[in-house]
Every structure is written in C-alpha cells, then in structure tokens.
C-alpha cells in the first residue's frame, strides 16, 4: 500500500511542478516526473512479490510470475513520453531564441 501512496505523491509532485513553476524547463521536468509516476503505477499493477518473468521453456515450470502485459505497455508509454519530451524541449529552445527568456510570465503575446 505504501508504494502506491508514494506513487501518488510522485504524481502530485509532477502536477505541482507543471502548475506552479514559471520556468519552461522546470515544467518539462514536471511532465517527465508525472509520466514516470504513471508508468511506475502501471508496472506496480502487474507486479507480484517474488514473481519472475514468464519465459516459456520446456524444462521449467513457472509458479509465481509477474504480469508481463503492463511491462510491454509501459515500454510503449516510455517511448511516447520520450517523443513528447523531446518535442517540448525543442519548442522550449525555440521559445528561448525568440523571447530570450524561459520565464512564462514574460512569454505573453497571446491574450484574450
């Protein structure tokens, strides 16, 4: 139970970071933290204490195995997260080139 709670705490830290921080880079870090906490949660769902990978082989029987599906899904989710982070970081660099600052309170051309 504690693990799930810590996972929630991590998620909230990420969300706090996105909502409250003013620096673009810190927002990106917040996004990464939030994504990791979701991935961690997904892995925890399929995890079993003492479980092992369900590799099929004729000479052994597996009694206690972890659920492999969440791991496969999380791999996909990590790749997606990487793409998003890379894209956002690229946009942030271009923003810096244009505005000369990472402070979101000074990046305000759009209003209304």
């Amino acid at each position: 139970m504690t693990v799930y709670f810590l996972c929630l705490v991590l998620f909230c830290i990420g969300l706090y970071c996105i909502v409250r921080k003013r620096n673009l880079i810190k927002i990106i870090i917040g996004i990464a933290i939030m994504e990791y906490s979701v991935n961690l949660f997904f892995i925890l769902i399929g995890y079993k204490i003492g479980g092992r990978a369900p590799i099929h082989s004729s000479d052994q029987t597996i009694l206690n195995m972890v659920d492999p599906l969440p791991q496969a899904l999380v791999l996909t989710a990590i790749v997606i997260g990487l793409a998003v982070t890379a894209l956002i970081a690229a946009i942030a660099i271009r923003v810096y080139e244009k505005y000369g600052t990472f402070d979101i309170t000074k990046i305000r051309k759009l209003k209304g």
């Binding site: 927002i27 996004i31 994504e35 979701v38 998003v84 956002i88 946009i91 923003v95 505005y99 759009l110």
Partner: peptide, 25 residues
C-alpha cells in the same frame, strides 16, 4: 516557428501531455 506559434504550441503540448497522463492513468 514565430513568437505566437511557439508559445501556443508549448501551452498546447503541456496541457495535452497532462491530459494524456490522466488517460493513461
């Protein structure tokens, strides 16, 4: 890749990613 486009894209990307995280959760 002008001022407004980049600003809007950043905002959109951040909010979109938060939404996606909630969907994945």
């Amino acid at each position: 890749t002008e001022h407004e486009e980049l600003e809007a894209a950043f905002k959109y990307a951040v909010m979109g990613t938060v939404a996606s995280s909630f969907i994945l959760l």
